[in-house]
Design a binder for these strands. Structure first.
Lengths: 202, 202
DNA sequence: CGCGACGTTGATTTGCCTCAACGATTGTGG
DNA sequence: CCACAATCGTTGAGGCAAATCAACGTCGCG
């Protein structure tokens, strides 16, 4: 079904997300939305596995996904979470068409809008405002990762956890603790003790 | 002096850097180069200090700079180095026109080409190929930071140092060891012991 | 020359990991 | 619908990597 045929709830969230960064007429938005492909994905299912080329950028309409890597000892390391209103992909693999070194899977049943590389290309050509949107999107992601590097160089696990609580309050009660621990770069046991310590202080 | 008046050595490196990513006629390049301002900076001098707004992106023609933050205990943490052919700025501050939380200073006497925000804007408007160039630049930086996050989550200081050696061999003999230690997120003493250990192994 | 910057080495401490065991909850197949 | 397994969070004991604190040698430079 064409998005122009119905102002579907799926696309409402995309519209909101895009209009927050750039200004765009409803006609242009609908034309742009046509480049996206809706897709549902079940909890624990993979959107991307290491070795594959990342074919799509995913916009999360509903649900929760993560991008993570596995090291040579077999441990998972969460690089990114994505809930409603977030974008997720392995951008390196996506643009270079090179095999990804990580995995994207769903932590909850999720509804996505996918944008393939060819469609992104055409979308940006036909509606230049989208070029600007995606530049801003990458720019913001870049800044976020740089902050994370600075944070991890400067602070203890406890401080990093407190920063996480402040920065992503909507994630705290939604993610299993061991996933948060992985994102922080510590073990679940360590996070448990940190939480215990913080609770005792109050 | 206009860059069109002489094919100055300063701009040679910029040309090389840009042509490596996009294709551009010599006329367009010269027109673009006119938006840049040459600037020399002495060792230990600041290009940016915390609290200031980052006014320029710097392209390094010659020399070496670093971007770093200072935590509440007064310790420095190097986020990025930049030698010839690299770009450096606090992009967040630059685009948001918000006060920076870090410092950029010169580790060696350096020659730079500066690009202000207004000039970047005009440059991209007048020569669209530059818009693409800077998008690619940010994209690559983004990917590099993401790799660094993954690396720091997965590996010990020793492995991270070995990765640094492989990834930036041109930096190893040029930077003081305590700067490398700071970039790795360890103390100079720890790096000294790691180097000692590696040397003994061989 | 003398001072500051830099790298090294040693002794001690500490933050986090590892391994192990244990409840609580969830989910699933018989 | 229950029984059993798997998942998740917690707690304890012991170990290790890196921090901290301190001392010292070397070099380069004003």
């Amino acid at each position: 079904m064409m998005p122009t045929d119905r102002p579907g709830d799926l696309f409402d969230r995309l519209r909101e997300n895009i209009l927050a960064k750039i200004s765009l007429g409803e006609d242009e938005f609908r034309a742009g939305a046509a480049y996206f492909t809706p897709r549902n994905i079940a909890r624990r299912a993979f959107l991307l596995q290491a070795g594959e080329v990342c074919r799509d950028i995913a916009f999360v309409c509903q649900g929760c996904l993560r991008y993570y890597t596995i090291d040579e000892k077999g441990s998972e390391h969460v690089i990114q979470f994505a809930i409603e209103g977030w974008w997720i992909a392995d951008l390196y693999s996506y643009h270079a068409e090179a095999p990804s070194d990580g995995y994207i899977d769903a932590l909850e049943d999720s509804e996505l809008l996918l944008l393939s590389r060819e469609n992104l290309e055409n979308l940006c050509l036909s509606i230049p405002a989208f070029e600007r949107f995606f530049r801003l999107l990458i720019q913001n992601s870049f800044v976020a990762y740089r902050k994370r590097v600075a944070e991890s160089l400067s602070n203890s696990a406890e401080v990093r956890y407190l920063t996480f609580l402040e920065t992503y309050p909507e994630l705290v009660h939604r993610l299993p603790q061991h996933q948060i621990a992985s994102w922080l770069g510590i073990t679940p046991e360590a996070l448990s003790r940190i939480r215990n310590k913080i609770a005792r202080r109050k």
